[in-house]
Computed example of a mutant assay.
Amino acid sequence: MSDHDVVIVGAGPVGLLLACLLAQEGIDVVVCERRLDVDDRSRAIGIHPPGLQTLDAVGLGERARAQGLQLDGGEVLCDGRTLASLDFPPARRVLILPQDRTDALLRGRLAELSGDALRRGHTVRGIRPDDDRVHLTVAVDDASGPDMVSAQRELTASVVVAADGVRSGIRDSLGIGWRARAGTARYLMIDVPDASGGARAQLHCAPGGLVESFPLPGGRRRWVALDGREERDRSAPAAEMFRDAIRARTGITPDIPDGERPVAFRARQHLAARTVQGRVILLGDAAHEVSPIGGQGMNLGWSDALRVASAIDRMLRGGRADLRGIEGRTRRAASAAQRRSRFYMSMGRPSHGLPLHARNAVIRVLGLAPLRGSAAGLITMRGI
């Protein structure tokens, strides 16, 4: 007999969503999260239609809609000229909601369903799968007193789900390969106050490189720009330097307060060699890293979670331990999302002369009336 039906490692949005799906079916689930504090970074902001369906499945869709901003479309521009303009139909609109708010909704819902499911300060140090259960060695940190106290204990579960991110310790412990896929670049990002309003995004595929501008709830705006500095310069530039780079590419001077610094990050793409090993399942970023350009990663993980929850429920009710049936669908969806992200990234690379004219021609064709609906569907993750 196992201590729990399911142990999820990692309390990011994907791990929390899966926990909610399982808990509402009466499955005994706990979530081990190494952090004692709450991650208040805005991070992922786009909830695509498939992602919103998963939030509906755990009773959070309306709460998310009430807090978020509905993105009704956007423009692709180059040198101040509009190359394409896309409108999302009401059923395919992207909901803009910073990840810290999404996480808070998921934590609140999990607490409603199972008050003690989330275990903070629980770091998984080891994993040992058996035929009928999985053994986990967990370090437990207690920060309630004046000094942090750490103890070690063992948990067992019928199924373990590793939702512990791109640097997954569970994946490494099991010796599962982590294969690089095409699509990598460096970007800079900042969220700042913005009084312009509106519910449309702007993508500037400028000769000097991509600049993205997204409205955020609460009168804020996110700016993302391809980092054109030398590889050796890893520091975040000052506000003035970031403003100058955006102005040079777009002709727009964003209102970035002095003293603010954008966050520098590298977009990469990877796919795990396998996502199921016995009674252990890799989920979300532990299974596949998708470039954030395109905003598909979190939503893809949520779609995976729906399939995983259904498979686990069937296994626990029927006593079957074979979970491999979900692996092929997970890998195919991840590969499709990575191909789309690679295409989006290619449209934002620096370009001049004939390559620039050719790229702009492709964007214009995608914005023509006969293809506009298909292009909008690709952007909003139709078919994934």
Rank of each mutant, 00 (worst) to 15 (best):
H352I: 10
L95R: 03
L368Y: 14
T380I: 02
A264V: 05
R274Q: 14
Q296E: 11
T123V: 04
L366N: 08
I293C: 09
G10H: 04
A361S: 11
R349L: 10
R359F: 12
R222L: 03
L55V: 13
I47C: 15
V9G: 07
R92V: 12
D130S: 08
V280E: 07
R120Y: 07
G348Q: 07
D28K: 09
D79H: 07
G377Q: 13
P49F: 04
I281K: 10
M148N: 13
D194Q: 01
G278E: 12
L316V: 00
L106N: 05
R359M: 04
V308I: 15
V192F: 08
I326T: 15
E33A: 01
S235F: 05
C205E: 06
Q269G: 05
S341H: 04
A206I: 06
E327R: 08
P146A: 09
R43C: 02
E62I: 01
L77K: 15
G318L: 12
D233S: 09
R125Q: 02
Q24M: 09
L216C: 10
S291L: 03
S374Y: 08
D72Q: 03
L210M: 11
A376Y: 14
I384D: 13
V30D: 03
V140N: 11
I256W: 03
E260K: 01
F343W: 15
A143N: 15
Q338L: 00
R249C: 01
I170W: 05
R220L: 07
A272T: 15
T54A: 15
A182L: 14
I96A: 00
S310Y: 03
I326R: 09
A104D: 13
G278M: 14
V138E: 10
E75C: 12
N299H: 02
G208E: 13
G74E: 02
R364F: 01
T82C: 13
R43H: 00
R249S: 06
G183K: 06
S144P: 12
